[in-house]
């Protein structure tokens, strides 16, 4: 869970940075998307590097989902009888890891169908013109709702996930506790704010 999660987290950091290029206008954003396809050229053929990233990501998503399923099964089996007296336990981010993960998995499917393949895209999806595609998506109310919910889920998931991964990998100790919590919160906040800024910018007309 920790290793596959950190791979995806690394991708998200690169992705949010790329998304923010939308604020520099269509030429720069579209050019950036083009560069993603010629990354590593001329050593690598067209889209090879991109496909390499996609394969690693797909493997990470798969490994993450499978271990989450196995872990959850084991955990539910270990507490077969629930307490009669229930009370709220742990933080919100910690309690929502399972549902948050499911929401994110569904989001990723929709997101790829929306902005990579264009299958569920509304308003004339055009490959090579992601700027217009992004504007189109965020001109629909449901596009905005799906993104905003998913971005909040990302923040919560990363908030607990990053810190938890550090403990699993044995990096945590009493002295680093504040540092790791701070890093987890900072990353979560930066990712959510960065991703959310794009639909908000389209909604307010800053990006059009």
């Amino acid at each position: 869970m920790a290793v596959s999660g950190l791979i995806m987290l690394g991708y998200l950091v690169a992705h949010v940075a790329g998304n923010l290029k939308v604020f520099f206008g269509p030429e720069e954003f579209n050019e950036y998307a083009h560069w993603l396809r010629v990354m590593g050229a001329p050593l690598l053929h067209h889209e090879w590097a991109l496909w390499l990233v996609r394969i690693v990501l797909l493997a990470a998503v798969g490994a993450h989902a499978v271990s989450a399923y196995q872990l959850s099964r084991r955990d539910i089996k270990a507490r077969p009888t629930a307490y009669v007296h229930r009370r709220r336990r742990a933080s919100y981010a910690t309690r929502t890891m399972r549902w948050g993960g499911i929401i994110l998995a569904l989001f990723i499917v929709w997101h790829v169908l929306d902005l990579t393949t264009g299958t569920v895209h509304t308003g004339g999806f055009e490959e090579g013109r992601p700027y217009q595609n992004v504007v189109d998506t965020f001109s629909t109310w449901y596009g905005n709702v799906i993104y905003l919910v998913a971005m909040l889920a990302v923040g919560l998931h990363v908030r607990h996930g990053f810190w938890s991964a550090a403990q699993t990998l044995g990096v945590g100790n009493a002295r680093r506790e504040r540092l790791l919590r701070g890093l987890a919160n900072g990353l979560a906040l930066a990712l959510t704010a960065g991703f959310v800024s794009v639909p908000v910018a389209v909604m307010t007309g800053v990006v059009s």
């Binding site: 089996k77 270990a78 507490r79 336990r89 742990a90 910690t94 309690r95 403990q167 699993t168």
Partner: peptide, 10 residues
């Protein structure tokens, strides 16, 4: 048969 740790801190 103990469960796996998800670092809930409980």
């Amino acid at each position: 048969g103990f469960g796996g740790c998800t670092l809930t801190g409980e």
